[in-house]
Design a protein around this nucleic acid. Structure first.
Lengths: 159, 159
DNA sequence: TTTGACAGTTCAATTTTAGAACTGTATGAA
DNA sequence: TTCATACAGTTCTAAAATTGAACTGTCAAA
């Protein structure tokens, strides 16, 4: 998660990517849609290209111009986008309602995204998931502070 | 999406929330697990409580101490977390492999999260989804530039 | 009496971001 | 030919956010 956040974890990158999913491709398009400063936009686009999320493709030669297109790696961010949108739709809408509705082409209905288990297909919730260290586990996820005398912790009074 | 990003869209908030899901509850716990500066941590926790993502609950009286617990609104962030982790697992792992594996209690298997359509249950991908303006739609999502003379931009001279 | 856990707060020094103008190529209009 | 505009950046300064480190304060145990 930390590595993902290293890619998309700032105020603007996700909004830029949202515009990509909404088919914006060019510098001015992003800038005017978002109101981001040109400086930061250039910075972020460069970073996303470096990280392989966007591809920079020339679309005219005279004054060299490029479009920014999602790579597969970028397209794979879609579930993150949908999860963010859905949480906002659930917890952050005002009285006017949702800004956007989503229609699923396959079934033709307006839908919400649901996250399910790849094995049994049941919807997921935090309580039903148990985490195990994997092969790339960190050495010390958390430094234990009450180390040596781990016991003396009868500090509680209220419960 | 912008509103969701307003809540969790910075470098540290998502990591703090990750620790919450991993059952960290106290100031020192977050601080030592993440290495975040105490100043920012205090700031972020306050913000999350204000926004209703965490609840601040006293666990001892003597020197007043509190724990930070996920509210339902916070728990609902779980799909976002899983989506972030899964993208990282897919595109950002090193040769050592995943740091964490997830087991679904319901079915007992190690799983990956999959995002599906709430109506037909099929997995979602960006191309199969069409967006429509909803009741809370923004007036002008994007100003068209190559229009006519959209605006006589008052180009000022340098000093 | 002293030390240490815990949960912050304060403050100077960096780093980022915002805001605005400026650079440069090319096209169409006057 | 000259001027205005589209487009994609770059450059600069001021303002905001973040870091790093030390400091405050309450209580418990040594």
């Amino acid at each position: 998660m930390a590595r993902t956040i290293g890619v998309i974890g700032d105020r603007w990158t996700l909004l830029i990517l949202r515009e990509c999913f909404l088919r914006t491709r060019r510098f001015e398009g992003f800038q005017s849609a978002l109101g981001i400063t040109r400086h930061l936009l250039a910075e972020r686009l460069k970073k996303l290209v470096r990280q392989g999320v966007l591809r920079r493709i020339p679309y005219q030669e005279s004054p060299k111009r490029h479009e920014y297109i999602l790579t597969q790696k970028g397209l794979d961010l879609y579930p993150i986008m949908m999860a963010l949108v859905h949480w906002g739709d659930t917890h952050m809408v005002d009285e006017r309602g949702r800004p956007l509705l989503h229609e699923h082409r396959k079934c033709g209905k307006m839908f919400d995204p649901v996250m399910v288990c790849s094995e049994c297909g049941e919807p997921l919730s935090a309580r039903e998931v148990h985490v195990h260290p994997g092969p790339g586990a960190r050495p010390a996820p958390e430094r234990v502070l009450l180390d040596k005398k781990a016991k003396p912790k009868p500090r509680k009074k209220a419960a």
